[in-house]
Amino acid sequence: MSDVVLRCAELTKRYRAGFWGRRIDALRGVTFEVERGEIFGFLGVNGAGKTTTFKILVGLLFATSGRAEIFGVPAGAIEAKRRLGFLPESPYFYEYLTGRELLDYVGRLFGLSRGENRRRGGELLERLGLGKAADTALRRYSKGMLQRVGVAQALMGDPDLLILDEPMTGLDPLGRKELRDFIGSLRERGKTVVFSTHVLPDVELLCDRVAILRDGRIHDVGPLGRLVSARILSTEIVVDGEPPELLARLGGLDAQARGGQLVVVVAKDGSVDVALSKIAAAGGRIVQVTPRRETLEDVFVRATSAAVEDSPSAGGDGGA
């Protein structure tokens, strides 16, 4: 049996907008797969096509061409939806409902019995820190609470695949950490999670694989270890001492004073040993030596700035 949970093949989406029916190509042949048990990050600048891809996968949009499958059935089919949980971007819920009532409504759409509905809803609200607000109307919820109840409703059907569009939006650092831990715990329960975010450190902490979407196309997809190379970009040496005097004695090194210390940056092709000897000879006390490796942010910035340079200047095409 194939372990592919989600498959997109040459997915395109074209809109017509405005009075003259201007053509907008939101997706231009998106192809990727997600395997069972993975936590998959979906990255891209605003308008790259992340939300459009997700909406096709959950049946809110129809692809212009190409194929999207979830568990081997076409995206949007009831059999696919039964095994899927979805959190939309900046979710809006019925503000006249309480958190408990919302989950009860969603549970009934999944055909849960009354008892199961109550048990699962209560459990999720507790796990997501909303136990005390369960009977409060959603109109009184903060943005972070709405985000959490959004995750809860996505989990009501006990889905095998969870698609979360910008789940970290509106959460404070503590809320973000809690949600990150929660998503991590889903992996332990064998769930597959696909999520989009702009918070790259979260992706680095959570994801097994990532896809970078650029201008409606997949720019790169793979395990984090492959996308982010292990090579050292530069080395930062922090030196204690009198900065003005040391600076004068460290000619030839890229150094600058920062908070009563001196920070020396050795480029990737420079010799750290030589720099360390020079600093020691000049009487500087070395406090810290930190090699700076490539981060996901570097990869992302490189990919997306290329998108800006490559993007067509006119002609009506653009991301959505």
Binding site: P88, Y92, F110
Partner: peptide, 14 residues
């Protein structure tokens, strides 16, 4: 308009 349907239509519902 209020996008409440965006959370409901992806549920197992025609």
């Amino acid at each position: 308009d209020r996008r409440t349907a965006y959370a409901i239509l992806p549920k197992p519902l025609h």
